[in-house]
Amino acid sequence: MIPKPSPWPRLLATALLGFILLVLSTTVFAWWEIGGVRLHPIIVVAVSAGFYLPLAAGAVVVFLLGILADLLSGGFVGLQLSALMGAFLVSAALANWLDISTWPFQMIAVGLLSLAGQLMVVGGLVLAERRFLAPADYWLTVLAQAVLCAVTAPVFFFLLEKLVAAVSRVWPRRDALGGVR
């Protein structure tokens, strides 16, 4: 009997990549912002968690990342969290019907969910802060950002798989008899 692979390496790799991308979003990606368009690849982590992680474990990782993103951001707590959780839940619901192991599907999934997530954030801002009114060119920025996320998504999926492989190599494995190797 072949033992079922442990979900822990992927869980740890997803959490680690999420943290790294969150820090990079506040530093390197912020420096490279062009015309308000900035790389925001944290959505890749939420999508990947939805497709590849067990529901409860993935929810915990995305929840923590969402809270951390909100605390480091200037908005009220719950805004980024809702957007990431929304992306995670939609991904988890689609996981049985859709395979995102190829790059075109990765790009489509990340692009659409990034767009939906940003619309949630802007909608939340308009509802919560009446004076926040998005100017006309704001929507172009939102769209451009979603396209940028979609185009770069395969790179981050690739990095995540490499990280999962690296963690799996050092993770203790169980043999067919249940012993730790």
């Binding site: 506040t26 530093t27 420096w31 925001h40 993103a69 480091l72 908005g75």
Partner: peptide
């Protein structure tokens, strides 16, 4: 040392 996580807000650390 850092900017906001998203482009929607303008905060720095």
């Amino acid at each position: 040392v850092a900017a906001d996580v998203t482009g929607h807000f303008r905060t720095v650390i």
